[in-house]
């Protein structure tokens, strides 16, 4: 079976088993290894991608279900020489990264969250992170970075991602 979808803004055609998890196509066929397959059961969030702008785990997404959809991976969030997404910049500034393996998924989950929740509180940020596990950092710096990111956007009168409020 052939499945056609948009991948980071370009047409992508996949020939094969429509029940193949999206993450395997990203990593094994497209070599987009920023998406990590860690638990493969939807608990860790390391494989999070955006499907039609929603952050979802790609391990449990059969590629057949993304026919016609727009998929964005971490590589598509700030590609080439583009500046970091404001959330990525805040995570870097907070010295939040350690081993780094959870971060692509963390960034994909939380970039959608800051876009949709410009006034989120600290407990709301933590609640949004229930499906993104980090084994290294103890989370608090990631929460700090998200809060800083939202603060900066509010002060600039913008939603994170650059859209005027």
């Amino acid at each position: 079976m052939t499945v056609t979808f948009q991948l980071n803004g370009e047409d992508c055609r996949f020939h094969g088993d429509p029940m193949t998890p999206l993450v395997d196509i990203l990593r094994q066929e497209r070599f987009l290894t920023g998406t990590k397959a860690v638990c493969r059961e939807g608990f860790c969030g390391a494989c999070t991608v955006h499907v039609d702008d929603e952050a979802v785990p790609s391990c449990l997404k059969p590629v057949g279900l993304v026919e016609g959809c727009a998929v964005t991976t971490i590589e598509g969030l700030s590609s080439g020489n583009q500046a970091l997404h404001p959330l990525q910049a805040n995570l870097e500034a907070a010295d939040a990264v350690q081993c780094g393996m959870c971060f692509p998924g963390m960034v994909m989950s939380l970039s959608a969250f800051v876009r949709d929740n410009p006034h989120a509180s600290r407990p709301e940020i933590k609640a949004a992170m229930v499906g993104n596990i980090c084994r290294c950092t103890g989370y608090e710096r990631i929460v700090d970075a998200v809060a800083d990111c939202l603060d900066q956007a509010r002060k600039a009168g913008q939603l994170v991602g650059g859209i005027n409020v």
Binding site: A55, P57, A127, G131
Partner: peptide
């Protein structure tokens, strides 16, 4: 239920 990513799906 579950976690936010799962709830979206």
């Amino acid at each position: 239920a579950a976690n936010p990513g799962i709830r979206r799906v």
